[in-house]
Amino acid sequence: MSDSYRPIHRALVSVFHKEGIEVLAQAFKNAGTEVVSTGSTAKKLAELGVNVTPVEKVTGFPESLDGRVKTLDPHIHSGILADMTNPEHRSQLAELGIKPFDLVVVNLYPFADTVRSGADEAQDIEKIDIGGPSMIRGAAKNHASVAIITDPADYALTATRVQNGEGFSLEERKWFAAKAFAQTASYDATIAEWTSSRWAKPQTLQSDAAQDSAGTEFAPTLSRTWDLAHTLRYGENPHQQAALYIDPLNQIGFAHAEQLGGKPMSYNNYVDADSAWRSVWDFAPAIAVAVVKHSNPCGLAIGATVAQAHRKAHACDPMSAYGGVIAANTRVSLEMAQQVKP
């Protein structure tokens, strides 16, 4: 085994989503790993038979402020951030009576899920995680000594490495750290998007010097994030790969549409569907149908009924309509459906 591998003797586990934690619990029991945990996570691990040390036993301070303060304590963060390759760090830990962590497992409060649920602002704010990102960033920074796991998809591998005593290599810990930094960056970008759309700059803070000629002020930075939804059938051309990413705060649009049948969508399918949808709604409230191929309408018509509009749109270029995307700005009737059916 390479010297860069670090066995996992002590773990800190604090997860909002408990799915899949059973595999870690079994590994901790089998390996005799010392586990420190918080609140409901500690309760869940104890139910699974893990000998858990509650975080307040380590900090000497109870979880407080309705759970807002749990792990924000030097006894926790010194154990996360101590570089065990540094003799001075090891000496200071010994002097302070603090044990280092070899593994940190964290997932965050579901901020985006809470916003999408329609919760009020106070509820959204309570789902802005503070301690979780702090632990993740600390462990990711200190990847020289600590493995940071933020994705339940990595639990099975982690359990194996805990049980066999191998731990993770430095290169593996770096990869997990990069993954963790990407997650906290995305989490903060989502919060920034939400706050910037709701908390406008008050008039009392306006400055003429900071405004452009149109009287609007530009933000110094723009932070947005998108989450991978799924891999597409292919990209713009069959030999290319593509994936669909969605805005975590937005449930509107084709990215969130339910596919009722047919092959998985390709990149071109999404582009054509968006083009067709935009085309027909330009004619509302008149009933309109569009037939789009390669992102351009090859047929577009209005009618007294949706079936009539479809017949007229299809007649514009029946040859190009083959393999195209059809959109209507009203409910599709049985008559139209029968016309579309091959």
Rank of each mutant, 00 (worst) to 15 (best):
D188Y: 04
I191K: 01
E193F: 02
E193N: 06
W194D: 03
T195C: 09
S197T: 12
R198D: 03
A200P: 00
Q203K: 14
T204M: 10
L205T: 05
Q206E: 14
Q206H: 12
D208K: 14
D208E: 15
A209C: 03
A209H: 10
A210L: 15
D212I: 07
A214Q: 12
A214M: 11
A214T: 15
G215Y: 09
T216M: 11
T216N: 13
E217R: 15
E217M: 13
E217K: 13
E217T: 15
F218L: 13
F218R: 13
F218M: 12
A219D: 10
A219S: 14
A219K: 14
A219L: 12
A219N: 09
S223C: 08
S223E: 11
R224I: 11
T225K: 02
W226M: 12
W226N: 02
D227F: 09
L228Q: 08
L228C: 06
A229F: 08
H230G: 01
H230S: 08
T231S: 08
T231R: 10
T231Y: 07
T231P: 00
G235S: 06
E236V: 13
E236T: 10
A242D: 07
A242E: 04
A243T: 02
A243D: 06
L244F: 06
L244W: 07
Y245S: 04
D247W: 05
P248Y: 10
L249Q: 04
I252G: 00
F254Y: 13
H256L: 03
E258A: 11
Q259E: 07
Q259F: 04
L260W: 07
L260D: 02
G261E: 14
G262H: 08
G262S: 06
M265D: 03
Y267E: 12
Y267L: 14
N268S: 13
N269Y: 09
N269M: 13
N269W: 11
D272G: 10
A273W: 03
D274G: 13
S275C: 11
S275G: 05
A276Y: 04
W277D: 12
R278P: 00
W281A: 00
D282Q: 15
F283Q: 09
F283W: 12
A284I: 00
P285M: 06
A286W: 01
A288L: 03
V289D: 03
V289P: 05
V289G: 02
A290C: 08
V292H: 02
V292W: 01
K293I: 01
K293Y: 05
H294M: 09
N296Y: 08
N296V: 15
N296K: 15
P297E: 04
P297I: 01
C298D: 03
C298P: 02
L300W: 04
V306K: 02
V306F: 01
A307E: 15
A307Q: 09
Q308K: 05
A309V: 01
A309W: 00
H310S: 12
H310E: 06
R311S: 15
R311C: 04
K312M: 09
